[in-house]
Design a binder for these strands. Sequence first.
DNA 1: GTTTAAATTAAACGTTTGTTTAAATTTGCG
DNA 2: CGCAAATTTAAACAAACGTTTAATTTAAAC
Lengths: 209, 209
Amino acid sequence: MEYSEKQVQIMEKAEKLFAEKGFDGTSVRDISEAADVNVAMISYYFGSKEKLMEAMFHHRGQDLRIQLENIIHNKGLTSLQKVEKLIDDYTERIFKKQFFHKIMIREQMVNNAGPIAKQIFLLKQTNQVLINQLISEGQKKGDFKKNIDVSLLMMTLVGTTSQLVTAQHFYKEIHQLQALSDEEFEKLIRKKLSHYLKVLFKAILVYEG
Amino acid sequence: MEYSEKQVQIMEKAEKLFAEKGFDGTSVRDISEAADVNVAMISYYFGSKEKLMEAMFHHRGQDLRIQLENIIHNKGLTSLQKVEKLIDDYTERIFKKQFFHKIMIREQMVNNAGPIAKQIFLLKQTNQVLINQLISEGQKKGDFKKNIDVSLLMMTLVGTTSQLVTAQHFYKEIHQLQALSDEEFEKLIRKKLSHYLKVLFKAILVYEG
DNA sequence: GTTTAAATTAAACGTTTGTTTAAATTTGCG
DNA sequence: CGCAAATTTAAACAAACGTTTAATTTAAAC
């Protein structure tokens, strides 16, 4: 199923507003105003505000899955290089889709059984299975040490990135970087984060404590 | 300023609801029902729903600051032991006040200039300064390596913990731990998290890559 | 016991909410 | 063009929202 130009326009404006003010903090009139359409168009195109959110998850759902298969099956890379590529891919993906990522963070806090919670769960599960593969491969080769808690490692990847994305204005202020433009600042923290996570993962995966 | 028994009762019920459904997703009637008081009591005691939230931050604000001074000035501990104690204190504190912590995660996403955002910023800043002290002390002693990005290290601490707290139902399902009681499960993940973070911090702080 | 203040209540307030309606306009097609 | 379907509109809808009101009950002080 594809979405028309108008539908995408509404979804993208809604995405920004949901990220900033939350689902319940955003009214359909806020969305219609931002998307420059009549209020009724949201019901007309999506059925309801709730279903607009679901459509958004469907629309973005494709982009979410880390392209891990490509990384895992790339014969030219060492296990550690694969992990480093995973970090680059993941952080880039999150920063590019930060509005949607913020919405996901909010939604995963709500422990319900709706279709959105299901989609988030499936995504997490799939990523976990693939990262499990990647780590065990490195362990078999002797590149990584044993006793790695992959779940917690994932939480560090996801959590550290989320923390930087959601609290970036705090980071900006604490480090006195207000002079930087948004683009410069984002470029800076992305680079710092990526480098930091690579050092961190290497330390965890290969350091014999 | 102190809060009466009734005020605390309202704040604690509101805390749970705000954590689960968000500020805008929770109505004053939800709160009054949960706290078993009349709707008007919220305005009567706090002035407004917004001010109830501010009172909650004031009420919990005390508990938030990590008792870092005590740790830092404890002469009997090595730098690494201090970091380990910091991790124990922090994770215990977050798990004990997880409702409030979830509210903070939501609120820090909203980049406004209100009193709540200010309080979160001050808290982060204070903690950062103190952890900076702790790390530099270890570096001077030669226990920790140079070039530590303390901001990102804090984000890993906060982010990993947040991720586990907010996505614990996913963790439960993925690891097939539904049979465990809530208490048993929480005890398990707290122990795992604390141990994992200690290994991680040690690896980052002392591993010469 | 009477008085005064604090606490509690049910009801009503005016807005805002998400959604629907029915009419008007635009679009695509023969 | 002429007609039908799709789109867009302003208006209206009931329900829920946060807050206020005014009356009542409870508690405390004298």
